[in-house]
Design a protein around this nucleic acid. Structure first.
Lengths: 197, 197
DNA sequence: GTCTATACTTTGATAGAC
DNA sequence: GTCTATCAAAGTATAGAC
């Protein structure tokens, strides 16, 4: 069993706290408490302080969530089913975590969009990678190059917007509805997609 | 020319600041500055302090944005065109405000979803009203009752998610793509919708 | 790399005169 | 209802020993 270093514990704590309560409401002391670390450790590993830690948290949680979504998507026989399972899985997680665990960077992305250019770029990098990943999978499923990117934007926007509605209303109805709509969109754009490896 | 009272100036200032930077990053002093008001006035009109002001800001900006969207939607000859114009208008506003003016309650909704039950309910009330409004219009356009609510969830989620992607990436591509997708969804669900009063 | 202790700033909120 | 002055707490960040 691998020992988890202080730096990794700091990032892990930040991932959970930023996901649930955002950047501004999360104090450094709260992160240090949860990571069982000291001020000196944080400023040793992240000389830039809270913002530098936040950038690392955004990159890590964004990449982790991308991998999770890709694994769910790729586990299904076709793209429409894959997308549907991503949304249904998100709904299940919402229910299982009292509507706390949703998109790990959504709250931070909105908080920093007009106030912190460095962190805004960090969130943009994550979203760009997600769009590229979804676009590539839709092309493989048979969508045209132009349609694939449009559809990727729509699917990711649907997911993010449904997360917001579900968390605010404490209902998974928006996510379940989005699952059906997203799957239908993919089915229409990639009608020939079928049995796959 | 009507004099704007102190209470209204406080709410107005909150609307702008919460829209752009969210709840936690916005200090009361910043609101007071922008409203040209004093601490005593704020606690006179809102004895509950920042949270009570925030609840008023959420309700007011949510209702205002609903009215704006409805007026754009209803100005078009059919539901599909109406929805498309709502999204295109949102993209234009993003471009015209350096990606600052988007959904007035989105950032706050995510910030408070798991941390402040009173304010979470305030955002839920706003979203519920939006869903009801869109559902009613889609029913009028010819969608079945069940389809209409599903579609309303999808359209609003698309709008919110597209706002997020656009602000983070400083591009209106996601919103323009969402406009096409949303209009197509409405057209499919209400194919008989046409010339209207 | 980690410890304890602290400096400095900003925050939300209140008191009391007028 | 608005003024000035101020409070206690929490925020980020740093210093210096080990």
């Amino acid at each position: 069993m691998q020992t988890v270093g202080t730096k990794e514990r700091l990032v892990n704590a930040g991932v959970g706290l930023f996901t649930r309560q955002g950047l501004a409401s999360t104090g450094i002391k709260q992160i240090l408490d949860e990571a069982d670390a000291r001020f000196s450790s944080l400023y040793h590993y992240f000389p830039g302080g809270k913002d530098e830690l936040a950038a690392a948290v955004i990159a890590r949680s964004g990449a982790d969530y991308q991998r999770l979504v890709e694994s769910v998507w790729d586990s299904q026989p076709d793209a429409a089913t894959g997308v549907r399972e991503v949304f249904e899985g998100a709904a299940d997680v919402l229910e299982g975590t009292d509507y706390a665990d949703a998109c790990p960077i959504a709250t931070v992305a909105l908080e920093v969009a007009s106030t912190n250019e460095e962190l805004r770029l960090a969130t943009a990098d994550v979203f760009d990678a997600w769009v590229d990943s979804a676009t590539a999978r839709l092309v493989v499923a048979g969508a045209s190059a132009g349609d694939a990117r449009t559809l990727a934007h729509a699917v990711i926007a649907l997911l993010e917007g449904a997360f917001m509605l579900c968390r605010a209303t404490r209902s998974t109805d928006p996510m379940r509805d989005a699952a059906r709509v997203a799957a239908n969109l993919v089915r229409q754009a990639a009608p020939a997609d079928g049995a796959r490896g």
